[in-house]
Simulated assay, not measured.
Amino acid sequence: MRLALPFAVLVAALTACSATPTADTTPASPPPSPAAPSLAVSPTSGASVNAGQGLQGKLRFTQIARLDKPVALAVRAGDEALYIAEQGGRLHAVKGGATTQIIDLSAEVSKGNEQGLLGVAFHPSGRWLYLDWTDAEGDTHVTEWAFDGTKATGRRDVLTQEQPYANHNGGQLAFGPDGHLYIALGDGGSGGDPEGNGQDLGTWLGKILRIDPRGEPYKVPDDNPFAGRRGAEPEIWAYGLRNPWRFSFDRQTGDLWIGDVGQNAWEEVDHEPRGRGGNNYGWNAFEGDRPFDESVDIGKAVAPVITYPLGEGGNCSVIAGYVYRGTKIPGLRGHFLYGDFCAGWIRAAPADDPAKGVEVGKVEQLSSFGQDHDGELYALSLQGPVYRVDGP
């Protein structure tokens, strides 16, 4: 993810932010040679819906709060508050127009563009709170607190990951329909994945992990796809990712949707049917569905279900949202909402035909989406506003 720069500066720095790029910066790329790895299309699921007909440009975004660089939103079982993380290190509860500070890590987090407090999630029981953040050295922590709805106590690190560079930290946390904690980590940073982390099963970098955090310090589920495999980290759920800044689970189907930020040509969204772990999403052999480094031999990888060109129209970083399963916007049901940080557009795509997305609104410096207990959606802007997504 590319965050924290002023909007105009950020657009000008799209390629400069990735050191030593090795891919063509134009959208067009030659087709793979016969020896190049191939991409397998991941089928999507969900009820058939029209492609956003009647929605184009008609969603409203109602401001419900204003914070300092909000980047992540979560809800807690039995609790009406929205819990919102600020990149600068503070977690707030927003309820009934009031904002209450819950945790303050501002003296501990690193302050780089893609660093800070990046993710928040609650255990399904509501008893424990988890934050993903980078420390003064730039390393990632997933930290747990016991939480009673008012006070966070008993702080402990669940896991830590050394970061070789300051960018591509991932940061998303979410509990899946199986009750396990999923953790996004980027490829370690720089440009082009110089350490080859995306395809290396011996590191957490460039992966989504899956753990049970209620252990010493955590437990690895026995059915993780690489548990027991020699040379592979057992926590790994999915790999071949560059910077999976945001992902979400469809509350109806349990499917996983991953927004993976591109290098200098293509942004992508990946789709994973419920429970189908072990997928390779292609980085750094592929960027989007185009070859990036043909010297990387990976065999088959899972193709993205959405791609769009980086730089065109100001595009720079995909922001994955949610499949809408609420009730207040009937025309949006069954659609996956996603957007772009720099361009600011938000699109709705049928979950069973995600390439057919249409623009439904705009939020400047879109940093994240959120979902409440009823399946209603929210959009966060790095400029400060937190919006509720409303219908026409």
Score class of each variant (00 low, 15 high):
209 L>S: 01
231 G>A: 14
205 L>C: 08
211 I>R: 05
244 P>Y: 08
197 N>I: 02
198 G>P: 11
194 P>R: 10
230 R>N: 13
192 G>D: 02
207 K>Y: 00
207 K>N: 06
199 Q>Y: 04
194 P>W: 09
196 G>F: 12
202 G>Y: 02
181 L>M: 13
213 P>Q: 03
213 P>M: 06
237 W>G: 00
193 D>A: 07
182 Y>N: 00
189 G>H: 03
214 R>K: 11
182 Y>K: 00
203 T>K: 10
181 L>I: 02
196 G>A: 11
235 E>M: 12
233 E>M: 14
232 A>W: 05
228 G>M: 09
224 N>I: 07
213 P>F: 08
236 I>Y: 00
207 K>A: 01
187 D>L: 01
223 D>C: 09
229 R>Q: 15
193 D>H: 03
238 A>W: 03
245 W>K: 09
242 R>W: 11
201 L>S: 05
185 L>V: 10
245 W>F: 15
224 N>D: 08
210 R>F: 01
209 L>A: 13
185 L>E: 03
244 P>C: 10
207 K>F: 00
188 G>P: 05
232 A>V: 09
221 P>K: 08
196 G>N: 09
215 G>I: 12
236 I>D: 01
241 L>M: 14
207 K>R: 08
205 L>P: 03
228 G>C: 10
239 Y>S: 07
209 L>P: 04
226 F>A: 04
199 Q>T: 10
226 F>C: 02
203 T>G: 10
189 G>Q: 04
245 W>G: 05
186 G>D: 01
214 R>H: 13
232 A>I: 09
187 D>V: 05
195 E>M: 14
183 I>H: 00
197 N>A: 15
233 E>I: 11
197 N>R: 15
236 I>K: 03
235 E>C: 04
240 G>D: 04
231 G>T: 09
218 Y>H: 14
210 R>Y: 00
218 Y>L: 14
223 D>T: 11
216 E>Q: 14
195 E>A: 14
232 A>P: 08
224 N>T: 09
214 R>I: 13
194 P>I: 11
195 E>I: 01
243 N>V: 12
191 G>M: 03
230 R>C: 00
198 G>V: 07
243 N>D: 15
206 G>W: 12
194 P>L: 08
220 V>R: 05
243 N>W: 11
222 D>N: 12
200 D>N: 15
241 L>Q: 09
233 E>G: 07
185 L>F: 11
227 A>L: 01
192 G>P: 05
238 A>T: 12
202 G>D: 14
229 R>I: 14
237 W>A: 14
195 E>Y: 13
212 D>E: 14
245 W>T: 03
200 D>I: 04
206 G>C: 08
230 R>E: 15
224 N>H: 10
229 R>V: 15
225 P>N: 06
193 D>Q: 07
216 E>P: 13
197 N>G: 10
204 W>P: 06
193 D>P: 08
206 G>Y: 12
184 A>L: 06
